[in-house]
């Protein structure tokens, strides 16, 4: 079963959004874990830990709070304050494990970042449907 080896990417949005990013992550062949509810960006590190995720994406106005919290609690290598999908791709290529963005709930971003991660991990992407849609309720 591919699910056992799915690369998980946790998504937390300050306003409880992030569905479009999750769709893009899934389309690229990774498994999105979308944290529900307001303030979700602050839980990215916790949910990554619980899920054994390879990457976390945090969205808030300034693009930093959730990422910095994940670093402070779990020592993640972060990039923050990003405003574009390309910045996220670069950060992934540099080995960052938590990415902090402003409010950019776009499928393009999720797809680009997930594709970059899969390439970096050497797992490739299997395209639409590889990951199951879930929420991070277990955190």
């Amino acid at each position: 079963m591919s699910e056992a080896t799915a690369v998980k990417i946790v998504i937390g949005h300050r306003l409880g959004k992030g569905q479009s990013v999750a769709d893009g992550v899934r389309a690229a062949g990774a498994e999105p874990v979308l944290i529900p509810g307001p303030g979700a960006d602050m839980k990215v590190g916790d949910v990554m830990q619980a899920e054994g995720a390879a990457l976390g994406i945090s969205f808030c106005g300034s693009g930093g709070a959730g990422a910095v919290t994940a670093k402070a609690k779990y020592g993640h290598d972060i990039e923050f304050g990003m405003r574009s999908a390309q910045a996220g791709v670069t950060a992934v290529q540099q080995g960052r494990t938590v990415l902090g963005f402003g409010f950019l709930d776009s499928e393009e971003l999720g797809y680009a970042v997930a594709t970059a991660l899969l390439a970096k991990l050497g797992t490739g992407g299997s395209g639409d449907g590889a990951g199951s849609a879930r929420t991070g309720e277990s955190a």
Partner: peptide, 26 residues
């Protein structure tokens, strides 16, 4: 934890003010 989060937000905010950068409307 919240102090750090607010302070990181503040860091981005002072940079935007310094550079005259304006966030998009919400």
């Amino acid at each position: 934890e919240r102090q750090l989060a607010v302070a990181v937000h503040a860091l981005a905010f002072v940079r935007r003010v310094r550079h005259g950068e304006r966030l998009d409307p919400l």
